[in-house]
Nucleic acid binder design. Structure first.
Lengths: 227, 227
DNA sequence: ATCTTACCATACCGATCGGTATGATCAGAA
DNA sequence: TTCTGATCATACCGATCGGTATGGTAAGAT
């Protein structure tokens, strides 16, 4: 009846490969241990600086200081500020993609359970302040760094949407006229709730229980059960 | 049966009042004609500069040049860069609030028609490149200017959500278990589609017809029709 | 032991930043 | 006409920007 859970993994793995290809990620193999450590320090410091102050607001001097490194070391690892920024965003994106939908314990579970689990994963991710800042930064710079925005949607939003679509179509207990559209409704409701509550600080003004959203969505799913 | 359409107007007007109060909008009455013109030139130039380059990326020199004005004139109208930025965002927010839901021609129309109209309004607004940049900027600076983000949600997202909730509850032809949650599902799906397609440039990678979203949503609404 | 390589500290570069000072010009109200 | 206030042009302020140069130090590989 239900398709195996292997299929959902495929687009994720593909996405990961595409990221590496997209960013021309060099092998770290030919770097010394200390050099790789420095590089990681730089990336971590740049990450916090960019997410805290934005691309223009964060200075290379600050990044160097926070990394415990001099500026020249940064420029020996990254061509310029833009490259460093792109590396930071790309690294964060891959991190979130890798931890995205790696719950293999949904095999054979009923559709509502799987969807609840998926929504909960997204909700819990938006509890992380770093993720909130990441999304803000990525969106804020989407106009100046369109490739970053495209990579983000391509590697996170789209596979998730595709996954939901597949879950909807493969479960023969349910029947949807336009599964792709319903998947976008489902995912859009979840994401937008996070956007409004966390990214735009709605939770400080008008907190709204995420469970009511997912309950409503599951109820809508149940209305599509074949009798 | 259906409530009058006056009710939806109330929260909008209230929001507008709150904006003015929030921003302590000074009366332009005591300013000379040329002075008011200069101020408008400055705001327009600042608007385009901030939306194009972000808060940190836009310089006061650039704004002055684009406004055809010297820097001192800017500082005679606005205390500093932050104040100017806040004025720009506030001005844009009020503009979008004012043109939000001023379609009085939905009186007595069936619920799906009204909801379609509402969704279309949101969709068409996101066709405007300036609005796209505005949303990107606002979200990007939400961490550094939390009051701006809060004002935005408070004056645009929340009243719209409340309006939909009221539409869902007041139409006795339909019955929803949790109208507020369904309203958020509806609005969330619409907004997230715009976010993904326009703000995050998804339309350049994977264009998706907005009509399929709204069709799906309306279909979901119809499933709640009382027999 | 030599040599290479990455890192260090410091200082520098021209440009630009947000914001201010000075003093001339110009328009409208008295 | 005189006065007042806003805008003008220009130049300046200290600070900081992204990025580079110089020359010394420390460590791992040959």
């Amino acid at each position: 009846m239900k398709k195996s859970t292997k299929a959902p993994e495929a687009p994720i793995a593909k996405a990961r490969r595409e990221i590496k290809k997209f960013w021309n990620e060099e092998d770290d193999a030919d770097l010394s241990e200390t050099s790789r450590r420095k590089r990681k320090q730089i990336l971590e410091a740049a990450l916090e600086s960019f997410l805290e102050l934005g691309y223009e607001g964060a200075s290379m001097n600050l990044v160097a200081d926070r990394a415990g490194v001099i500026k020249q070391t940064i420029y020996s690892h990254f061509q310029d500020k833009q490259t460093l920024f792109q590396a930071v965003i790309a690294s964060l994106t891959t991190e979130y993609v890798q931890t995205a939908i790696e719950n293999p314990d949904v095999a054979g579970k009923p559709l509502p359970v799987v969807l609840r689990k998926l929504a909960e994963t997204i909700f819990s991710r938006h509890e992380d302040p770093r993720h909130t800042k990441f999304v803000r930064t990525m969106i804020g710079e989407a106009g100046r760094f369109p490739e970053l925005a495209k990579m983000f949607t391509e590697t996170t939003v789209r596979p998730t949407s595709a996954l939901i679509t597949e879950l909807l179509t493969s479960d023969t207990d349910y029947k949807f006229n336009d599964p792709e559209a319903f998947a976008k409704v489902f995912l859009g409701s979840v994401i937008n709730h996070c956007m409004q509550q966390h990214i735009l600080l709605g939770k400080e003004l008008q907190p709204f229980d995420a469970m009511r959203i997912v309950d409503e969505l599951v109820a809508l799913v149940e209305m599509h059960k074949v009798k």
